Amino acid sequence: MAAGRELHWCDHWWAHPEAVVRLTALWLSWQAARLQPDGILGWLRDADNTMDRLTVSTGTFSQCGPSRHKPQPALPTSQPPAYLFSPLSTAAPASQA
């Protein structure tokens, strides 16, 4: 952690989907990195980046504290067009392009 930077952590880290995805990816990459002679150095860079993303003042845990959990609001979304999720479709229909 950089000098003078406030660290934000949430004891309900598992209730933040972004944290779960990032920490799961970090764990899986650890499983591969630990078996490689030079894998841990790269893993440490990934771990530092992951923890920075989660704990900075604008990160995933920015509104939380050691004993305070406040989930970030979800980004607004609208219903996507049905063709985006068609298993055989790779592009918009001609009338939609």
Rank of each mutant, 00 (worst) to 15 (best):
P73K: 11
P76G: 00
A74L: 13
I40T: 15
A33K: 00
H8L: 03
L84C: 14
V21F: 04
L88N: 14
D38H: 08
Q72V: 05
T24F: 01
L84P: 05
L35I: 00
C10W: 01
Q96L: 10
A25D: 15
S57R: 11
V56L: 09
Y83H: 15
A2I: 07
T60V: 14
R45Y: 11
P87H: 02
W30S: 00
E6H: 01
A94D: 08
R34Y: 06
S29P: 06
W9K: 10
S67K: 07
P73C: 09
T60C: 07
S62Y: 14
W43I: 04
S62A: 15
Y83T: 03
P17R: 08
C64N: 06
H8R: 14
A3F: 11
D11N: 15
F85G: 12
L23I: 08
A74Q: 12
S67P: 04
L41V: 14
A19Y: 00
T50I: 09
T58G: 09
S86K: 07
R45A: 09
A3N: 02
V21T: 14
K70S: 13
A2E: 04
C10P: 02
W14A: 14
F61H: 00
P81M: 10
V56R: 04
T77N: 11
W43H: 10
E18M: 00
A32M: 06
W14E: 15
R34I: 08
R34D: 12
L26C: 02
H12E: 15
P71T: 07
L23R: 07
E6D: 03
A94M: 07
P37A: 09
E6Q: 04
P37I: 01
E6Y: 03
V56E: 05
L35C: 06
G42Q: 12
L26A: 06
A32N: 13
S62G: 04
G65W: 05
V20H: 01
S89H: 11
P66H: 04
A74F: 10
S62W: 12
D38R: 07
Q96N: 08
T55D: 02
L28C: 13
A74K: 02
A47P: 05
W27A: 14
W30E: 05
A97Y: 08
A47D: 07
P76I: 01
A91N: 12
L26H: 04
A2V: 07
A92I: 11
V20N: 00
L84I: 02
D46H: 10
Q31N: 13
P93E: 03
H16R: 05
H16E: 00
S78G: 12
Q72L: 15
W14H: 15
P81R: 12
G65F: 03
P71F: 03
G39Y: 01
L23D: 06
F61A: 00
S29C: 00
F85N: 11
D11A: 05
W13E: 10
Q36D: 15
P81C: 09
E6N: 05
Q79L: 14
D46M: 10
A33G: 02
